[in-house]
Write a protein that binds this DNA or RNA. Sequence first.
DNA 1: GTTAGCACTCTAAGGACGAGAGTGCTAACG
DNA 2: CGTTAGCACTCTCGTCCTTAGAGTGCTAAC
Lengths: 342, 342
Amino acid sequence: MLTDRQSRILELVVHEYVEAASPVGSQLLCRKYRFNSSPATIRNEMADLEDMGYLTHPHTSSGRVPTEQGYRYYVETLMREEQLPWEEQQTIRHQFHQVERGQEAWVHLAASVLAQAAGNAAVVTAPRTDVCRMKHLELVNLHERTALLVLVLDQGRVEQQLLLMDESSGQDDLSQMAGKLNRLFAGCALAEIAAKDVPLGDGERVVMDAVASIMRAVDEGFDEASLDGIREVLRQPEFAASDRALGLLELLDERNVVRVLPLRSLARDGVTVIIGADNPRLAEAGETIRACSVIVGTYGSPGVASGALAVLGPMRMRYSRAIPTVRYMADVLSELLSGYSE
Amino acid sequence: MLTDRQSRILELVVHEYVEAASPVGSQLLCRKYRFNSSPATIRNEMADLEDMGYLTHPHTSSGRVPTEQGYRYYVETLMREEQLPWEEQQTIRHQFHQVERGQEAWVHLAASVLAQAAGNAAVVTAPRTDVCRMKHLELVNLHERTALLVLVLDQGRVEQQLLLMDESSGQDDLSQMAGKLNRLFAGCALAEIAAKDVPLGDGERVVMDAVASIMRAVDEGFDEASLDGIREVLRQPEFAASDRALGLLELLDERNVVRVLPLRSLARDGVTVIIGADNPRLAEAGETIRACSVIVGTYGSPGVASGALAVLGPMRMRYSRAIPTVRYMADVLSELLSGYSE
DNA sequence: GTTAGCACTCTAAGGACGAGAGTGCTAACG
DNA sequence: CGTTAGCACTCTCGTCCTTAGAGTGCTAAC
């Protein structure tokens, strides 16, 4: 257990290091924060904190830097979350004001807003249910035997697929077929479609096979996710070396973030903070992410539809700000989602 | 006009500098390429080439580096385009083999394949016609008064928009309305829809207003584009300094590449190579792009539907490889597109 | 016109050096 | 006994110097 003074010192070291990004020494702490102990005392305490594993030394004669454990203790015990200032809240809300452009755009926007608000990289996964249901399908004739299947799932997610039909059929035929399939299967989950076991014609078979394969991919596959704001992270001094920067870029490709950061399985109730190699799931993700922290939250409601959101930045991150931002953003997205779902 | 020997030297300097990324001196040229003139002679020629503006000196006593003008002369006059090796061709074609996931995915894939093949960043814009035509629209009931408009344009481009209807209507009402609007307007361009001047009900008005605004945005707005492979470029030594890297990342955001690189207006017939601040349209784009080159091509056929593709990399780029890659890729995309359009 | 020779220039890498910041230890203090 | 002043020690960082190496430009000879 830490004494009050030790706590105070640890807190200040974290605070100062997060702001200034350079190791913090006993004098600085003493002067800047009007500590009523002498530098020598602080040094002694720091040495103790180091023995306990909360601080380190980059080299013999430099100031102290928090360890992973130090950050963790700070976040769990010492930190006071800042309230998100009112204007900030308004700015966030405001950006969602005029958007009515479908789910994908919505997720993009959410990631971008979160990244900006948190000043770090942000990931937002699209909302989804446990098993998706087909809401509506449409067939559009593109070219002789080529048709476009447009499949609307619950939550307004839209998937498309090209179909090569056995025989060429006009738009009217296709519309009629779509109508029939909609009447039969609208509102069904994958299992229910299979259970119905309705006899289908050749063309209908092709369509429903495609539908099934899309729905299976959505059910089993990785979430659709949008990523934004890596630039903010790369601006930080820990990524000044270009090889590190490349490492991060390689890791955080929009196409595979969710593979590396399986947000849904990382998220617990409320907001979860993962510091460095904290989490076994992330430990394999390599060097780069071990120098980073991730703050994960969820939005929506478990029964109906839900998604996850996360802020990712260097371990030296302004947690007291980033955590409430994720919290607030989760609320906003939940609210918006409830206006979106059935 | 350059003498044969001068041409030879310029060619070798470009070649060597592109490969090794460090200024090339007279001795190296002499040894490595078994020149049958002495270093001194080469030095004299180099000095002449420098006077004529084809080469420069980073500092008094270093080897020579091509200037923009030097690269341009090389590309226009000296370069022999390499034939893309057959396996490479197959690799490219192969990657398009199994894709049937709609236009957006197609464009993404194209950008990714091009980036990989050229070893540089790549941009591909979605195919489009001069004015888009609506092919089909669909209305899906999401939530009381909220409906999702799914609009399929020609070339299979799908746009979505949420609609807030005046009064709540069931899926049946919506489908009926969609049917009517399809019968009226399917195949029409924006102007033709306006010209028809059909009297519409309140709900129909809302839908068609949304349709018109989407189509206007597509007609007038920037092309949809996909970007990939910036990492390849950042790996190059010219971007080792992290501020430069950040500059490039800022410039080449997927959301605004086309703003900076208006591919369609840059492209001429065939393949266009823009070296450095060559092109007045790019000159304003700032420092970063002035150190880069862009190779632009088009695909599709002007009357029907066409798009643009580009490779972007440092000015020190392997043109003899990148140019044929763009050329070949343009052919492949054209072929694929013709199977896609009406 | 070409080339050998040479003085000159500039970079890159390594070593020396002092200033500055910080530590750890010891001994004195309240 | 906890706290603190004092001090020697360590390590970084920027600067300066030096040296090796690569390359140039010029001149004079071939």
